[in-house]
Computed example of a mutant assay.
Amino acid sequence: MSRPPTFTPPAGVRARRLVTARGEFAALDAAAAATDARPTVKGTVLLLPGFTGSKEDFIALHAPLAEAGYRTVAVDGRGQYESTGPEDDETAYAQDELARDVLAQAHALGTPVHLVGHSLGGQIARAAVLLDASPFVSLTLMASGPAQISTSQQERVKLLRDALAVMDMAQVWDAIQAMDAPEETDTGTLDDGLDDRADLRRRWLATSPAQLIATGRLLCTEPDRVAELAAVPLPKHVLSGERDDTWPIPLLDEMAGRLDAHRTVVRKAEHSPNTDQPLETARALAEFWDRTQNGQP
């Protein structure tokens, strides 16, 4: 489970509802910092969280990206944390449905956006681009690989899905707390003595179990669609930490080559560079977007 540094929006970050043609989504929205040298915003960014995650996973990126001239909007997908979704209808979380939500979010922002998807969010971002690339000016896949997750992570996701089939969310949370081993696909463990456990529990309990079951299945069965994505004429960026148990780094390197994508490896980061090393991650993102706007490869 990804661990944001805080669940409280810092100064300059506004919690709001993003109203779209497919419903409302909880969002954290940060305007670009105004300067005399840069009177206009460089661009708008849409950030999609990963499995068991939320918009708060990007909370440490808003300020440095605002300073770099970018407006950032991080969203909870349907059934994630503060965005509502069915609790017992897995069909609502089919990849095509989630991808169409992303297209609606981009259209609601009213301007072409730089799309960033972390882990599961990267797979959903890819599906959205393959449906319709026109709302986007670039795509960044953050710690998100070409196909299904690693065998070891598939085993962890299966354990979670099996538990959710027979227990409610509170019971599963308690079972996770009783285990010493790390949980599923995003970094961190729940039971490490940090003070954020109440926030993490609140996020967990607010998340739809059907969303977790359905998206967990997606993570374990996703086909390789790299060739399809490579054919889309959109600047692409593959960003990761220097270690990743969900998609091994050599696999991400290979995918970047197949996509002819810009490649960033964030030092001293693992599966969640956005929380492990947010300043370095923000710098790499802004540099990539600046390059694309200047027409550089």
Rank of each mutant, 00 (worst) to 15 (best):
L200P: 01
D101H: 07
G121C: 07
L190Q: 08
M142D: 02
A94R: 15
P223I: 02
D132P: 06
A108G: 09
T215Q: 07
A147L: 00
D195E: 14
R156W: 00
D89N: 09
L200F: 08
V113Q: 02
T215A: 03
W173N: 04
H118G: 08
L131A: 15
R201F: 08
E228D: 15
P223S: 04
T151S: 09
V157R: 03
A198E: 15
D101R: 07
L190F: 14
V113F: 02
R202Q: 13
V226D: 11
A175S: 14
G122A: 07
S138G: 09
L160I: 13
G216S: 08
D191R: 14
R202W: 02
R217C: 02
S134Q: 12
A128R: 07
A143Y: 00
G145D: 03
P146T: 04
H118F: 12
P182H: 11
R225W: 01
T221P: 06
V226M: 06
H118E: 11
I213V: 15
H118D: 10
Q105T: 05
Q95T: 14
P112I: 01
A127Y: 03
V129F: 10
V137E: 13
L141P: 01
Q105W: 01
S208N: 10
V157L: 02
F136P: 10
P112G: 03
T207H: 14
S144G: 04
R201C: 05
M142P: 01
A210N: 06
G145K: 04
L103D: 04
E228A: 14
Q211E: 12
R201L: 06
L130M: 11
Q153H: 10
A175C: 05
T91C: 01
S134E: 12
D132Y: 05
V166D: 09
E183R: 14
Q154F: 00
L205F: 11
G145F: 04
R217W: 04
S119A: 14
R202M: 04
